[in-house]
Amino acid sequence: MVQISSDIIRGYNDTMILNILMKGPSYGYQISKEIKTISDEKYVIKETTLYSAFTRIEKNGYIESFVANPDPEGNGKKRTYYRITEAGLEYYKSKCEEWELTKEVVEKFIEENPDSLTLDDN
């Protein structure tokens, strides 16, 4: 079975997180669930990957974290929420352009039907 190239996807975890946060503040598990749903369960982000992405992009100023209580009626557990910043939005836009370019270039080398390919001996 074909798997997602972890090298490629690593560079776009930030983009996915920013995309989800554009819809509103969210927290760790909800974001990982969104990623899974949106990718039709083709990509499951690891907890450590997600957390390391959070710390990295927060350090870069693309997201902000704040502590909130999801349900006041509940067990009173505090949760760390993240929200996107202006800089984050700019970064997201540039990542989208970068991806378009990358896709455009790589796609020029991708055959539509690789299964039919053979090596001619000439």
């Binding site: 990982s32 997600l50 949760r79 760390t80």
Partner: peptide, 10 residues
Amino acid sequence: SELLQMMEDK
């Protein structure tokens, strides 16, 4: 604690 929270949610 953040990792535990995520794992607990899941």
